[in-house]
Amino acid sequence: MEAERAGRGRRRWSRYPSRTFYLFVSPWVLGFALLTALPLGYALLVSFTNFNGRNSRWRWVGLRNYTELVRDADVIASLVRTLAYTAITVPLMVAGGLGLAVLLNRRLKAVGLFRTIFFLPSVVPVVAMAIMWKLIFNRDAGILNAILEKVSVGPTAWLVDPNAFYALIILTLWGLGGGMVIMLAALQGVPAELEEAAVVDGASRWHVFRHVTVPMISPVIFFQVVTGIIASFQIVIQPLLLAESNQVGSVALVPQSTHLYMVQVYEEFFNNNRYGYGSAMLWVFFVVILAITLVVLRSSRLWVHYQVDSEGER
């Protein structure tokens, strides 16, 4: 917004009508209308029908899909699992990312090397990630069971119920390097004078971290929590690919414990051909995401304020 504010009232704006602006942003506006709004609207329409994907004779069923899904035991169970997955992974991801960032924010040799190693997993394509972790979790030949055997733990089947849930969490946590980089940048934005002042006042390192550093980067932490929640709600590929010997687009082999909400949606669409019902599930999900997004946008004022403050000090 800075540029806009700076340019307000200048003559050059008035010489160029809104037309130029619309011309430049039209790719996104058209794309948003046709590839985001239209599919979402279409899904809303379909959610009130019994469309099965093939038959063009749809029947309007009103709110029946919605009333069914709030009573559908499978949907409720998948939602509860998704909430559990979110409640476990998001705090661990955020705390882990912050912890690594704190470790790497010190003046150590080879800090860049460690940063690279921790960040690397977050750029690995999901298919390769799943293959790698299936090799580790393999019951007979995987290295995890080989290590566990050394401490006399018998072979564990990691990729079936109930352990598949924990395997999925471990796979997710492996990618926390992306969050680490963001936290690191946030930590480096904390003015050193503040922390030094606290040290001079006799605060311990933990107190400085808890009462100076964390409040200073709290907008970033909050943002990480919110994007983390949204990211973990939409998990679908990882359970599909972690399932033993999956076929493309088949959810039949996904273990119960990793049968999350989006996996359920996927199953309704592509296994049960219940496009109407699946669309209703998507819309429930959309409304939840929308609510979370609104919270973020409301809190963005907090973040912008923070940025202006720290820039003023520099």
């Binding site: 599919p39 279409y42 899904a43 994007t227 949606v265 699946g278 669309s279 959309f286 995401i289």
Partner: peptide
Amino acid sequence: LFMVLLSTMMLPQILTLIPTYVL
């Protein structure tokens, strides 16, 4: 418009992908 753009960054891709596929 910019607000809409920022909020679509939050939209999970999978949400629009399945209906897009159907369309």
